[in-house]
Amino acid sequence: MILDHWVSVLTGKKNQRRQLPYEGKESFKWQRASENTEQRMGGKMPDIISVCDREADIYEYMHYKLDNRQRFVVRATQNRILVDGELLLFDSLAQTEVLGKYTIVVPQKGGRKKRKATLQVKRKKMTIQAPQRPGGRPEPVTMKALVGFQTATGLNIAEALYLQRLSAYCPVMLPNPCFS
């Protein structure tokens, strides 16, 4: 019985996904969408900011965006290893200086009532260690992070947003420039 379980773990879908090249995984859809957008938009690509959910928190996708000098926002799901310290991404951001506090209205949705939330906004430039891959470990990537924490409960609402090349764009709640 134990041997059967062990064998199924080694031959299971998760192990098979790890062995697939990035281009063969479903998560490659984010890069494919960026490539298609670049083909359609051509010279306007520097004006476009790709906004992605947690599914796009993929090292290879962010590396692609950085290599191609494309602006993007990805909501982080991975508490990544940082090259420059002992802390992981979320802990490092939690210790970062607060830039300001903003109150936003969270609209009613489903059975939840409309409410106000006060956020602390922080930013940090960081270098993220690349994950180990079957062919070895790629080079680390350096990018900027913006984070919003709900102050009333200390919950990390936005967790972390990876932001690259924001000199021309800032969310409404932040004064320009977000990053120097």
Rank of each mutant, 00 (worst) to 15 (best):
K114P: 03
K113Y: 09
K144H: 14
N68G: 03
M45I: 15
V121N: 03
E97P: 14
K116D: 08
V73R: 09
K109R: 13
P46R: 13
N68K: 15
V74S: 01
S92R: 12
I81E: 11
D57Y: 07
Q132F: 08
G110T: 08
V51L: 15
L82F: 02
G136I: 05
V83D: 01
T127E: 00
K113L: 13
C52K: 05
G85F: 08
Q132D: 14
L87A: 10
R115P: 00
Y102E: 05
L99Q: 02
V121A: 12
L82H: 03
Q129K: 12
G135S: 15
I58V: 15
G148L: 15
V141H: 00
T103E: 14
L93C: 13
K122I: 11
R133T: 10
D47N: 14
Y102R: 11
R71V: 03
R115S: 07
P138K: 11
E139R: 15
R54N: 05
M45S: 09
K116C: 05
A145N: 12
N68D: 02
K113R: 13
F90Y: 10
R123P: 04
K101N: 11
G136N: 10
R71W: 02
V121S: 07
V98W: 04
P107Q: 07
R54L: 08
V74E: 05
N79W: 05
A94D: 15
S92E: 02
V73F: 04
I49L: 14
E139I: 11
I58C: 06
I49P: 07
V106A: 07
G111A: 07
S50I: 05
A76S: 09
M62T: 02
N68P: 08
V141D: 00
D53L: 07
Q108K: 15
N68C: 03
R133L: 15
T77Y: 02
V73S: 08
M62N: 00
D84A: 06
I81R: 13
R54M: 04
M45T: 13
K116L: 10
K101V: 13
T103D: 10
A130L: 01
Q95C: 03
V74A: 01
P131C: 11
E86Q: 12
T142F: 02
G100S: 14
V51T: 09
G111R: 10
A130K: 01
F72A: 01
Y61D: 00
D47F: 08
A117L: 05
A145I: 10
D91V: 00
A117I: 07
P138Y: 11
P138T: 10
R115D: 02
I128G: 02
R115C: 07
K101P: 00
E55V: 13
R69I: 07
K114L: 08
A76D: 01
V105E: 15
